[in-house]
Protein backbone atom coordinates (compact mmCIF):
# COMPACT_ATOMS: atom_id res chain seq x y z
CA UNK A 1 0.00 0.00 0.00
CA UNK A 2 1.25 3.48 -0.84
CA UNK A 3 1.70 5.93 2.04
CA UNK A 4 -1.00 8.57 2.51
CA UNK A 5 -1.80 11.42 4.85
CA UNK A 6 -5.05 11.44 6.78
CA UNK A 7 -7.46 13.97 8.21
CA UNK A 8 -10.95 14.03 9.64
CA UNK A 9 -13.70 16.24 8.25
CA UNK A 10 -15.35 18.19 11.09
CA UNK A 11 -18.44 19.09 9.05
CA UNK A 12 -19.70 19.17 5.48
CA UNK A 13 -18.02 22.46 4.51
CA UNK A 14 -14.75 21.28 6.03
CA UNK A 15 -15.04 18.02 4.04
CA UNK A 16 -15.51 19.94 0.78
CA UNK A 17 -12.47 22.14 1.49
CA UNK A 18 -10.34 19.11 2.36
CA UNK A 19 -11.49 17.17 -0.72
CA UNK A 20 -10.14 19.97 -2.94
CA UNK A 21 -6.55 18.98 -2.05
CA UNK A 22 -4.87 17.21 -4.91
CA UNK A 23 -5.08 13.43 -4.55
CA UNK A 24 -7.67 13.60 -1.76
CA UNK A 25 -10.32 10.87 -1.54
CA UNK A 26 -13.18 10.54 0.95
CA UNK A 27 -13.34 7.40 3.09
CA UNK A 28 -16.58 6.24 4.71
CA UNK A 29 -17.04 2.54 5.53
CA UNK A 30 -13.82 1.71 3.70
CA UNK A 31 -14.94 -1.76 2.64
CA UNK A 32 -14.09 -1.14 -1.03
CA UNK A 33 -11.41 1.52 -0.69
CA UNK A 34 -9.19 -0.15 1.93
CA UNK A 35 -9.37 -3.42 -0.01
CA UNK A 36 -8.33 -1.72 -3.28
CA UNK A 37 -5.58 0.25 -1.54
CA UNK A 38 -4.13 -3.03 -0.25
CA UNK A 39 -4.18 -4.33 -3.81
CA UNK A 40 -2.48 -1.13 -5.10
CA UNK A 41 -5.45 -0.55 -7.40
CA UNK A 42 -6.20 2.76 -5.69
CA UNK A 43 -3.44 4.89 -4.17
CA UNK A 44 -4.89 8.14 -2.82
CA UNK A 45 -2.32 10.64 -1.52
CA UNK A 46 -4.71 11.85 1.16
CA UNK A 47 -7.74 10.36 2.88
CA UNK A 48 -10.54 12.51 4.29
CA UNK A 49 -12.47 10.57 6.92
CA UNK A 50 -16.15 11.58 6.62
CA UNK A 51 -17.50 9.20 9.28
CA UNK A 52 -18.35 11.99 11.72
CA UNK A 53 -20.56 13.93 9.27
CA UNK A 54 -24.18 14.08 10.50
CA UNK A 55 -25.63 12.15 7.55
CA UNK A 56 -26.80 9.01 9.35
CA UNK A 57 -30.56 9.59 9.47
CA UNK A 58 -33.44 7.93 7.65
CA UNK A 59 -36.33 10.41 7.51
CA UNK A 60 -39.87 10.23 6.17
CA UNK A 61 -40.58 13.28 3.99
CA UNK A 62 -43.84 15.28 4.03
CA UNK A 63 -44.49 14.33 0.38
CA UNK A 64 -44.56 10.65 1.29
CA UNK A 65 -40.99 9.87 0.24
CA UNK A 66 -37.97 8.91 2.31
CA UNK A 67 -34.60 10.61 2.70
CA UNK A 68 -31.58 8.42 3.45
CA UNK A 69 -28.36 10.04 4.69
CA UNK A 70 -25.19 9.07 2.81
CA UNK A 71 -23.62 7.72 6.01
CA UNK A 72 -26.52 5.41 6.93
CA UNK A 73 -24.99 1.95 7.26
CA UNK A 74 -26.28 -0.83 5.01
CA UNK A 75 -27.37 -2.86 8.06
CA UNK A 76 -29.42 0.03 9.48
CA UNK A 77 -31.08 0.73 6.14
CA UNK A 78 -31.77 -2.97 5.49
CA UNK A 79 -33.44 -3.41 8.87
CA UNK A 80 -35.26 -0.06 8.89
CA UNK A 81 -39.00 -0.62 9.49
CA UNK A 82 -40.15 2.05 7.04
CA UNK A 83 -37.91 0.65 4.31
CA UNK A 84 -38.95 -2.94 5.02
CA UNK A 85 -42.62 -1.99 4.81
CA UNK A 86 -42.72 0.62 2.05
CA UNK A 87 -39.66 -0.28 -0.06
CA UNK A 88 -39.15 -4.03 0.55
CA UNK A 89 -36.98 -4.48 -2.56
CA UNK A 90 -34.37 -2.17 -1.01
CA UNK A 91 -34.29 -4.02 2.31
CA UNK A 92 -34.06 -7.38 0.54
CA UNK A 93 -31.25 -6.20 -1.74
CA UNK A 94 -29.22 -4.77 1.15
CA UNK A 95 -29.60 -7.86 3.33
CA UNK A 96 -28.62 -10.10 0.39
CA UNK A 97 -25.35 -8.20 0.07
CA UNK A 98 -22.00 -8.98 1.70
CA UNK A 99 -22.00 -10.13 5.36
CA UNK A 100 -23.36 -8.70 8.61
CA UNK A 101 -19.92 -7.31 9.47
CA UNK A 102 -19.51 -5.58 6.11
CA UNK A 103 -23.08 -4.23 6.20
CA UNK A 104 -22.29 -2.65 9.59
CA UNK A 105 -19.42 -0.77 7.93
CA UNK A 106 -20.68 -0.04 4.39
CA UNK A 107 -22.63 3.17 3.84
CA UNK A 108 -25.34 4.28 1.40
CA UNK A 109 -22.99 6.72 -0.34
CA UNK A 110 -20.10 4.28 -0.37
CA UNK A 111 -22.22 1.50 -1.82
CA UNK A 112 -23.04 3.77 -4.79
CA UNK A 113 -19.29 4.27 -5.29
CA UNK A 114 -18.43 0.53 -5.16
CA UNK A 115 -15.92 -0.64 -7.76
CA UNK A 116 -16.19 -3.71 -9.95
CA UNK A 117 -15.06 -7.21 -8.91
CA UNK A 118 -13.45 -7.84 -12.33
CA UNK A 119 -10.39 -9.99 -11.59
CA UNK A 120 -8.22 -8.05 -14.03
CA UNK A 121 -9.20 -4.67 -12.59
CA UNK A 122 -8.36 -5.90 -9.08
CA UNK A 123 -4.94 -7.28 -10.01
CA UNK A 124 -2.31 -4.78 -11.23
CA UNK A 125 -0.15 -7.75 -12.33
CA UNK A 126 -2.36 -7.58 -15.44
CA UNK A 127 -1.31 -4.48 -17.34
CA UNK A 128 -4.40 -4.37 -19.55
CA UNK A 129 -7.33 -2.70 -17.82
CA UNK A 130 -8.87 0.38 -19.39
CA UNK A 131 -10.72 1.13 -16.17
CA UNK A 132 -7.51 1.11 -14.10
CA UNK A 133 -5.17 2.52 -16.78
CA UNK A 134 -7.04 4.23 -19.65
CA UNK A 135 -5.84 3.02 -23.04
CA UNK A 136 -4.15 -0.12 -21.73
CA UNK A 137 -6.67 -2.58 -23.16
CA UNK A 138 -9.06 -5.10 -21.60
CA UNK A 139 -7.74 -8.44 -20.39
CA UNK A 140 -11.25 -9.73 -19.68
CA UNK A 141 -12.52 -9.62 -23.28
CA UNK A 142 -10.34 -12.57 -24.27
CA UNK A 143 -9.65 -13.80 -20.75
CA UNK A 144 -11.66 -15.64 -18.10
CA UNK A 145 -14.88 -13.66 -18.28
CA UNK A 146 -17.39 -15.85 -16.44
CA UNK A 147 -18.47 -13.04 -14.07
CA UNK A 148 -18.53 -10.31 -16.70
CA UNK A 149 -21.34 -8.32 -18.29
CA UNK A 150 -23.71 -9.46 -21.03
CA UNK A 151 -25.42 -6.03 -21.14
CA UNK A 152 -23.92 -2.56 -21.52
CA UNK A 153 -20.38 -3.66 -22.35
CA UNK A 154 -18.10 -1.98 -24.87
CA UNK A 155 -14.94 -2.98 -26.72
CA UNK A 156 -13.04 -1.30 -23.89
CA UNK A 157 -14.72 -2.78 -20.82
CA UNK A 158 -17.14 -5.53 -19.79
CA UNK A 159 -16.82 -5.24 -16.00
CA UNK A 160 -20.05 -5.65 -14.03
CA UNK A 161 -21.27 -3.26 -11.39
CA UNK A 162 -21.29 -5.23 -8.12
CA UNK A 163 -23.95 -3.43 -6.04
CA UNK A 164 -27.24 -5.00 -4.96
CA UNK A 165 -28.48 -1.80 -3.29
CA UNK A 166 -28.10 0.30 -6.42
CA UNK A 167 -30.16 -2.17 -8.46
CA UNK A 168 -33.03 -1.78 -5.98
CA UNK A 169 -32.63 2.01 -6.08
CA UNK A 170 -33.04 1.93 -9.87
CA UNK A 171 -36.37 0.10 -9.42
CA UNK A 172 -37.46 2.80 -6.96
CA UNK A 173 -36.69 5.91 -9.07
CA UNK A 174 -34.20 7.07 -6.41
CA UNK A 175 -32.43 10.42 -6.65
CA UNK A 176 -28.81 10.91 -5.52
CA UNK A 177 -28.13 14.28 -3.90
CA UNK A 178 -24.59 15.62 -4.03
CA UNK A 179 -22.85 18.79 -2.92
CA UNK A 180 -19.67 20.30 -4.31
CA UNK A 181 -17.81 23.57 -4.83
CA UNK A 182 -20.57 24.68 -7.27
CA UNK A 183 -23.38 23.87 -4.82
CA UNK A 184 -25.95 21.09 -4.70
CA UNK A 185 -27.10 18.79 -7.52
CA UNK A 186 -29.78 16.12 -7.83
CA UNK A 187 -28.85 13.16 -10.01
CA UNK A 188 -31.51 10.57 -10.96
CA UNK A 189 -30.11 7.11 -10.13
CA UNK A 190 -30.30 6.01 -13.77
CA UNK A 191 -27.88 8.81 -14.70
CA UNK A 192 -25.58 8.34 -11.70
CA UNK A 193 -23.71 5.30 -13.03
CA UNK A 194 -22.12 5.57 -16.47
CA UNK A 195 -21.82 3.05 -19.29
CA UNK A 196 -18.15 2.25 -20.01
CA UNK A 197 -18.19 3.24 -23.72
CA UNK A 198 -14.75 4.61 -24.55
CA UNK A 199 -14.22 5.97 -21.00
CA UNK A 200 -14.55 3.01 -18.61
CA UNK A 201 -12.48 4.85 -15.99
CA UNK A 202 -15.38 7.31 -15.56
CA UNK A 203 -17.88 5.29 -13.54
CA UNK A 204 -20.26 7.83 -12.03
CA UNK A 205 -21.63 11.33 -12.54
CA UNK A 206 -19.92 12.45 -9.31
CA UNK A 207 -17.35 15.15 -10.11
CA UNK A 208 -14.00 15.64 -8.39
CA UNK A 209 -14.53 17.41 -5.08
CA UNK A 210 -18.20 16.44 -4.83
CA UNK A 211 -19.72 14.51 -1.95
CA UNK A 212 -22.90 12.42 -1.83
CA UNK A 213 -25.07 13.79 0.99
CA UNK A 214 -28.21 11.65 0.72
CA UNK A 215 -30.50 9.57 -1.45
CA UNK A 216 -34.23 10.21 -1.72
CA UNK A 217 -36.91 7.69 -2.60
CA UNK A 218 -40.08 9.26 -4.00
CA UNK A 219 -43.54 8.13 -3.02
CA UNK A 220 -44.74 5.75 -5.72
CA UNK A 221 -47.59 3.42 -6.51
CA UNK A 222 -45.24 0.50 -7.19
CA UNK A 223 -42.60 0.56 -4.40
CA UNK A 224 -44.57 -1.39 -1.82
CA UNK A 225 -45.16 -4.43 -4.03
CA UNK A 226 -41.53 -5.08 -4.81
CA UNK A 227 -38.95 -7.85 -4.58
CA UNK A 228 -35.26 -8.64 -5.10
CA UNK A 229 -33.95 -12.00 -6.28
CA UNK A 230 -30.21 -12.66 -6.27
CA UNK A 231 -28.58 -15.73 -7.83
CA UNK A 232 -24.94 -16.52 -7.02
CA UNK A 233 -22.33 -19.26 -6.70
CA UNK A 234 -23.15 -19.89 -3.02
CA UNK A 235 -26.17 -19.16 -0.83
CA UNK A 236 -24.72 -16.19 1.04
CA UNK A 237 -21.79 -13.74 1.26
CA UNK A 238 -21.23 -13.62 -2.49
CA UNK A 239 -21.73 -11.21 -5.36
CA UNK A 240 -24.57 -11.73 -7.82
CA UNK A 241 -24.14 -13.64 -11.05
CA UNK A 242 -27.59 -12.31 -11.90
CA UNK A 243 -30.15 -10.42 -9.89
CA UNK A 244 -33.46 -8.70 -10.48
CA UNK A 245 -35.26 -5.90 -8.66
CA UNK A 246 -38.88 -5.33 -9.56
CA UNK A 247 -41.63 -3.04 -8.29
CA UNK A 248 -45.19 -3.55 -9.48
CA UNK A 249 -48.42 -1.58 -9.29
CA UNK A 250 -51.33 -3.94 -9.92
CA UNK A 251 -54.89 -3.06 -10.83
CA UNK A 252 -56.74 -6.32 -10.24
CA UNK A 253 -54.57 -8.76 -12.15
CA UNK A 254 -53.35 -6.18 -14.67
CA UNK A 255 -49.97 -4.50 -14.35
CA UNK A 256 -50.58 -0.75 -14.23
CA UNK A 257 -47.02 0.44 -13.70
CA UNK A 258 -43.75 -1.41 -13.15
CA UNK A 259 -40.02 -0.92 -12.71
CA UNK A 260 -37.47 -3.57 -13.66
CA UNK A 261 -33.74 -3.47 -12.89
CA UNK A 262 -31.06 -6.13 -13.31
CA UNK A 263 -27.81 -6.64 -11.40
CA UNK A 264 -24.75 -8.84 -11.90
CA UNK A 265 -25.18 -8.96 -15.67
CA UNK A 266 -24.52 -5.38 -16.74
CA UNK A 267 -21.83 -2.73 -16.62
CA UNK A 268 -24.11 -0.55 -14.48
CA UNK A 269 -27.23 -1.12 -12.39
CA UNK A 270 -29.44 -1.89 -15.37
CA UNK A 271 -32.93 -0.54 -15.86
CA UNK A 272 -34.84 -2.53 -18.44
CA UNK A 273 -37.32 -0.25 -20.19
CA UNK A 274 -37.89 -3.13 -22.64
CA UNK A 275 -39.17 -5.42 -19.88
CA UNK A 276 -41.27 -2.63 -18.40
CA UNK A 277 -42.88 -2.07 -21.79
CA UNK A 278 -43.68 -5.76 -22.13
CA UNK A 279 -45.28 -5.78 -18.68
CA UNK A 280 -47.22 -2.52 -18.62
CA UNK A 281 -50.92 -3.05 -19.27
CA UNK A 282 -50.50 -6.83 -19.52
CA UNK A 283 -52.02 -9.49 -17.27
CA UNK A 284 -49.71 -10.57 -14.42
CA UNK A 285 -49.10 -14.17 -15.46
CA UNK A 286 -46.33 -16.59 -16.42
CA UNK A 287 -46.51 -15.81 -20.16
CA UNK A 288 -46.21 -12.07 -19.57
CA UNK A 289 -43.29 -12.55 -17.19
CA UNK A 290 -41.40 -14.79 -19.60
CA UNK A 291 -42.01 -12.32 -22.45
CA UNK A 292 -40.65 -9.52 -20.26
CA UNK A 293 -37.58 -11.59 -19.44
CA UNK A 294 -36.94 -12.27 -23.14
CA UNK A 295 -37.30 -8.54 -23.86
CA UNK A 296 -34.92 -7.59 -21.04
CA UNK A 297 -32.12 -9.81 -22.37
CA UNK A 298 -32.80 -9.34 -26.09
CA UNK A 299 -29.72 -7.20 -26.64
CA UNK A 300 -27.51 -9.37 -24.39
CA UNK A 301 -24.13 -10.35 -25.84
CA UNK A 302 -22.33 -13.40 -24.48
CA UNK A 303 -18.56 -13.57 -24.10
CA UNK A 304 -16.72 -16.89 -24.08
CA UNK A 305 -17.57 -17.95 -20.51
CA UNK A 306 -20.62 -15.93 -19.40
CA UNK A 307 -23.36 -17.05 -21.78
CA UNK A 308 -25.13 -18.86 -18.93
CA UNK A 309 -25.94 -15.49 -17.38
CA UNK A 310 -28.49 -14.69 -20.07
CA UNK A 311 -30.87 -17.48 -19.05
CA UNK A 312 -29.98 -17.00 -15.38
CA UNK A 313 -31.01 -13.32 -15.52
CA UNK A 314 -34.30 -14.26 -17.21
CA UNK A 315 -35.06 -16.73 -14.42
CA UNK A 316 -34.14 -14.17 -11.74
CA UNK A 317 -36.54 -11.67 -13.31
CA UNK A 318 -39.42 -14.13 -13.61
CA UNK A 319 -38.94 -15.25 -10.01
CA UNK A 320 -38.77 -11.64 -8.76
CA UNK A 321 -42.00 -10.78 -10.58
CA UNK A 322 -43.72 -13.80 -9.06
CA UNK A 323 -42.53 -12.81 -5.58
CA UNK A 324 -43.60 -9.20 -6.04
CA UNK A 325 -47.17 -9.96 -7.12
CA UNK A 326 -47.58 -12.33 -4.18
CA UNK A 327 -46.29 -9.67 -1.74
Amino acid sequence: MQPFSFSQARNQDDALVQLRQSGAVAIAGGTTLVDLMKLDVQSPAHLVDINSLPLSRIESLPDGGVRIGAMVRNSDLGHDETVMKRYPVLSQALLAGASAQLRNMATTGGNLMQRTRCYYFRDPAYAACNKRTPGSGCAALEGFNRIHAVLGGSEQCVATHPSDMAVALVALDAVVHVVGPQGERRIPIEEFHKLPGTTPHIETALQNGELITHVTLPKSSFAQRSAYVKLRDRASYEFALASAAVAVDLSGSTIREVRVALGGVATKPWRSHEAEQALTGAPANADTFRAAAEAALKSAKALRYNGFKIELAKMALVRALNQAIQA
Partner: peptide, 25 residues
Protein backbone atom coordinates in the same frame (compact mmCIF):
# COMPACT_ATOMS: atom_id res chain seq x y z
CA UNK B 1 -9.62 -8.55 2.49
CA UNK B 2 -12.98 -8.82 4.25
CA UNK B 3 -13.74 -12.24 2.81
CA UNK B 4 -13.33 -14.57 5.81
CA UNK B 5 -14.38 -12.88 9.08
CA UNK B 6 -11.42 -14.10 11.18
CA UNK B 7 -10.68 -10.46 12.12
CA UNK B 8 -14.16 -9.71 13.50
CA UNK B 9 -14.19 -7.28 16.45
CA UNK B 10 -16.89 -5.07 17.95
CA UNK B 11 -16.78 -1.32 17.45
CA UNK B 12 -19.30 0.49 19.63
CA UNK B 13 -21.08 -2.83 20.14
CA UNK B 14 -21.34 -3.77 16.46
CA UNK B 15 -19.32 -6.41 14.67
CA UNK B 16 -17.02 -5.31 11.86
CA UNK B 17 -14.06 -6.64 9.86
CA UNK B 18 -11.01 -5.02 11.49
CA UNK B 19 -8.90 -5.72 8.38
CA UNK B 20 -10.89 -3.27 6.24
CA UNK B 21 -10.60 -0.19 8.40
CA UNK B 22 -7.66 2.00 9.38
CA UNK B 23 -6.71 2.39 13.06
CA UNK B 24 -6.65 6.19 12.66
CA UNK B 25 -10.41 6.09 12.00
Amino acid sequence: HGQCGACTVHVNGRRINSCLTFAVM
